[in-house]
Each structure stands twice: as structure tokens, then as C-alpha cells.
Amino acid sequence: MLARATLLAASVLLVSGCKLELPILGGNSISGPLKLETVEFQRAGGPQCPGAPETTPENIRCANLQLTYPKVLAAGNPQAAAKINQFIQEQVLEYSDAEGKPPATPEEFASMFASAYNEVPDAMGLWEMERKVEVSFASDHLATLNFSESGYTGGAHPFSGQRYFVLDLDSGKQLTLNELLAAGYETELNKVGEQAFRKARGLSASTSLDGAGFWFANNIFKVNTNFGVLGNGLVFNFNPYEVAPYAMGPTDFTVAYGDIQGLIPDTSPLATVAK
């Protein structure tokens, strides 16, 4: 087993402020009380990282971690801002060492990632992990975070995926479909969701899902809980391996509010967004 190497000096920590308030293309928009600044962290560690003496593409042995995420300066209230920042940190730092201990800081995360690399006897080349959290949508009371991850840690191919999170800007709480839609919404949402899914995948209404290579129980479509609120509808994502082989890639599709208007109660936090 290789000895644990100390982290090399290939480290960058950047912090910059940016108030998000301009419209974004694709039916998304940023407005309301949310104010942010972007944090960027990058650190490489291992026996032979770029910049070390005599490092070449052939002998490189290194693990590189990149994190980009927002720091909330203001939300509906200071308590909500603090809770959202804690939530973002939990997502960005989701990792653990061999004993199951999670990192408390990006620096600890980088150290654990480099140590995991060094403990693989035949690890060669470059391990990489990049995590990014972006605000896809924000209004007076709701915000959608898009968490994406990609990289390579050995094996046949790289990994990638993304998750959406909908947050209440007044409480900092993560919201679920059960809290946004009327009771019993599942049947109608799955029906409309299947139409949007088929359109995104170029499938006709008569095409069998399993015949097209998708893995839905009993060949019946069902939305998942990986969803976000946008300006024009609810966006859903199926990651690689979730409902299809890796080679078929992910599927992102949007259910327009006009197609589910009857599922959105007037008392829902979604009601003002969906008008």
C-alpha cells in the first residue's frame, strides 16, 4: 500500500461576489430576495501531481478536486440563509473516509480524496472530481439548486450526474412534490410526465419503454423525486444507470405548468410561480 502523500501546493481558493437578478434563457429566472457570492475551491494531491518535478502525462499520479458553489448572503431572513448555506455545504461535502467519517471542510475533503487515491496500489493517471452547485431558478419564496458532479476514479468510464433541490427561501427547508402539489397528484403527474419524457427521448406514444431500452417497473413510467422548479414548469432528471444503461445517458425533461395547473393548489408555494 502506498504511503499517504501530503497535499501538494497546487491549491487555489477564490471567492467572488455576484448578485443574481437577470433573467436566464430557457424559461428560468432569478429574482426575489436571494443574494449570493460564488466560492471556488481547487486542490490536487498525490505522489506525482502537475507542477511537481519531472511530472509528465505518462507518469502523473494525482487526485484533483474542484468545488464551485454559492454562499447565500441573503434569503427570506437570516435564519433561512444560514440553513440554506448549511444544506449546500452538506451536499458539496458529501463524502467519507474508510471509517465513515465525513469531511467538515473542503480542505478535509481534498485530503480524504487524495488519501483514497494513494491507497489504491495500482492507481495511475489522474483521478478527478468536480462538483458544482448553481441556482437554476429563484423567486420571492422558492429557489432551485442544481447540483452536478463529474469525474473519474478508475474503472471503465467517467461518472456524472445531477440532482435538483427546491428550497423555501423563508424557512430554508427543502420542499418535496407532496408539499407543492395536491394530494393524489401522482397519477396525473406521471401521465403528463411520460408525455414530456417521450418527447425528450424522441419516442412515440406507442413505443414500448422497455423495448426502447428503459428500465421502469412493469414497463410503467413514473417520475422520480429528482425535480426542480423553473419559470416554465417542473424539471425532472434521470441520471445514467437510473432508468437506462450508461450508454444511453441522462434524461432531462420539463412538465409545463399549463399541463398540471389542476394539481397546484392556491395555497401551494408553487402557485405564484405557476401563474
Score class of each variant (00 low, 15 high):
Ser208Met: 08
Glu90Asn: 12
Leu93Ser: 09
Ile60Gly: 05
Asp168Ser: 00
Leu93Trp: 11
Lys71Cys: 05
Gly17Met: 12
Thr272Val: 12
Tyr117Asp: 00
Cys18Glu: 15
Ser136Tyr: 10
Thr153Phe: 11
Ala143Met: 09
Ser150Gln: 14
Tyr164Trp: 04
Gln89Pro: 03
Val273Asn: 07
Leu230Thr: 06
Val133Met: 10
Ala116Phe: 04
Val229Lys: 07
Asn239Phe: 00
Gly258Arg: 09
Gln174Trp: 08
Asn237Gly: 09
Lys275Thr: 06
Leu67Gly: 00
Leu180Lys: 04
Lys101His: 11
Asn226Ile: 02
Ala10Val: 06
Phe238Tyr: 10
Gly151Cys: 05
Ser150Leu: 00
Asn77Asp: 15
Lys35Arg: 07
Gly125Gln: 02
Ala74His: 01
Gly100Cys: 08
Ala114Met: 04
Asp252Thr: 08
Leu8His: 13
Gly100Asp: 02
Ala138Ser: 15
Gly262Ala: 11
Pro103Tyr: 09
Asp259Tyr: 00
Phe253Met: 02
Leu73Phe: 06
Gly154Gln: 11
Phe109Asp: 13
Asn190Val: 07
Ser160Val: 01
Ala116Lys: 15
Ala156Gly: 12
Asp252Gly: 02
Met1Leu: 14
Phe109Ser: 13
Trp127Lys: 01
Val135Gln: 01
His141Thr: 07
Ser111Thr: 10
Gly184Phe: 02
Tyr117Thr: 03
Gln42Trp: 11
Leu234Pro: 02
Glu40Ala: 14
Asp140Asn: 12
Ser139Glu: 04
Phe113Pro: 05
Leu126Val: 09
Gly211Cys: 12
Arg163Asn: 11
Arg131Asn: 07
Gln48Pro: 03
Ala205Asn: 09
Ser160His: 08
Pro250Asp: 15
Thr153Asn: 12
Phe197Glu: 04
Ser208His: 09
Phe227Ile: 00
Asp259Thr: 13
Thr225His: 00
Asp252Arg: 04
Lys83Met: 00
Leu230Val: 02
Phe253Val: 06
Pro106Thr: 06
Tyr257Gln: 10
Gly27Phe: 03
Gly45Cys: 01
Gly161Gln: 09
Phe147Pro: 08
Ala156Tyr: 02
Leu67Trp: 11
Thr153Trp: 05
